[in-house]
Structures are given as C-alpha cells and as structure tokens.
Amino acid sequence: MMKNKLNVVWWVIGLLFFAFFPKIFGIYYTNVMVTLAIFSVFALSVNMLLGYTGLLSFGQAMFFGFGGYGTALALTHIPGIGVLPAIGLGVLAAVVLALILSPLVVRVSGTAFAMLHLAFGQLMYVLALKLYNITGGEDGIANFPVPGLFTESLKSSPEHFYYLAMVILGISTWLMWYVTKTPFGQIQVGIRDNAKRIDYLGYRVPQSKAVIYVLSAFFAGVAGSIYGLFHNLVSADGSLGIGMSFAPIISVMIGGVGSFFGPILGVAIFQLVDELILRYTESTELVMGVILIVVVMFMPTGFVGLYRMLRQKISARRTPEAKKEKA
C-alpha cells in the first residue's frame, strides 16, 4: 500500500516535470528534450530486439526512415490530413515493411541477422536516393505542412509540438515497458537466454521473433515519424543512413543491453558526448567509433551493468567486514 502511494507520488512529480518543462527551461532545452525522447524510443525499439530477444540488427534505420517518409509523404500529398493520421500512416509503412521482411529474417539469427539488415538497410538508403520523384533524392522531403491537433500549424510553436511529441513518445515508452512485463515479454527473454529450451517448452520461436520484430519496427516507425515532423525534413542521410542504424545500438550499449531503462540513460550520455566532442571535431563517425570500441572493451554491460557490479562489490565488501566485527 505504502509502495503504491509512493509510486503515485513519483508519477505525479514526473508528469508535472514534463508538463512544465518548456516553461522552466525555455525553448532550447525543450527541443533538446524532444530529441532525447525521440532517440530514447528509437533506442528502446532496438533494445526490444537486442536486449529482449538477442537479435542484433544493423538496419533498424529503415523502419525509422519508413516512419519518417510515410508521414512526410502523407502530409505532402493528402490535402487536409491531420497530424495523427499522418503519423499513423508512417508507422503503418514501417510495420508493413517489417511484415514483408519478417518471414525471411526470423529464420536466421546472430551474425546473419545483423548482416541481412545491413544489406536491406543499405538497399532502402540507395532506393531513397534514386527514387527521386517520390523521395526527393538527396534533398529529401522538406517543408511539408505540420498541422497541430488544435492549431493550424505546429511549425512556429515548438512548445505545442513538444506536448504532442512527448505524449506520443511517452505512451510508446510505456507500451514497450508493458510488453516486457507480459507473458510474451517473458518468452522473449527466454529466447535470448536459450531458444532451444523455449522450443522444447512448446513455444514457437520463429513466430515469437516475428511478433517482436514487427513491434520493434512499429516503435522505430513512431520515432522516425516524430523525428521527421520535428525537423520538418526527411532525407536519406538524415533518416536512413547507416549512422542512424548505429546511433541507437551505441546508446543501448552505453546504457546497458537488456535493462529496460538503460538505453534511455545511454541516449542521454551519447547525445551529450556527441554534442561536446562535435565542438572540437566535425566527425560524428570518429565519435561513434571511439565510443563503440571503448564500451565493448571496457564496459560490455554498459552503465547499468557497471552500476550493478559496483553495488554487488560494495555489498560483498560490507558483509564479510560486518561478520569480522561481530567475531
């Protein structure tokens, strides 16, 4: 009971924080927050595959990109479409792509899964560049209308956009968290640990993978769609490039694979490091590369793992000492 009340208090504090964020911190940090939220949802979608099912994809950007292009195209070509249906269409595009790929990709795992996605991701990138009439080629699709729910346009009111984005991204985060708590989520963890045994317990491994794959694409699509709206631009390099597939992997690695909230921490750290280092060098590639190397070599379980390990060490040190003192 006490715990429940405490939970409610935390929820209220959290909601108030996000509700008054733009008023307190001003427009610059409001936009930073939207960026963080977008990449959190994107990283969580990667972690859904990587952390909860053990599938490493080098092409998650294609779902992110499909979400963005779908929404941008809908807003460009369908007169009077609302912002929510446009987001819906973007997400639908990502889901349809995942459904098409799922029979193929769920039959492989490990290295082949990663490489297959690298190839498909690159294919989508090339197509986005070449199908100029649809995608606008290198320039991408820009300056499409961004209608608000209650206002004509969100373009000049970042505060309104913040609320729209945060509600959608917040719900997405909650949904992804909820999935991990369902029986289905438990089965996914089982697949990551020991797919063979899951099979022998009577679960269909490929079908489970297919479902999680499509769910992951759904949330990557949400993130991509909001990202496109946020920048009012969707382009091959911005939404489909190989860097966009690796940014969420890096965040997940920094935060800690498999812990639910680790990737969010990872996104914050990665964005911060990126921001700081880019003041000294132009090269995002260098930043990403160095972070990947350092994380894999020195903290393979990420910050969450580091924290757990430290906590364990401290409690382990305490117990024998306590015993000694008694003796």
Partner: peptide, 30 residues
C-alpha cells in the same frame, strides 16, 4: 539447459505458462 539469467521462479513459470496455453498474451502483466 535452463534459462541461466532468469530466476528459478521465472524458469518454472515459463513452463507453467506453456502448460496453461498462455503464449502470445501481450495484454496482461504476467
């Protein structure tokens, strides 16, 4: 061949879930 990172409870629960035919349930908290 158990699920090494899961607790004893979670291990057995995966078997019980299968026995009771709870497989693709995405709606309720386990």
């Amino acid at each position: 061949s158990t699920f090494m990172n899961l607790t004893a409870f979670q291990n057995i629960r995966l078997a019980i879930l299968s026995k009771d035919g709870v497989r693709f349930n995405l709606l309720r908290r386990v």
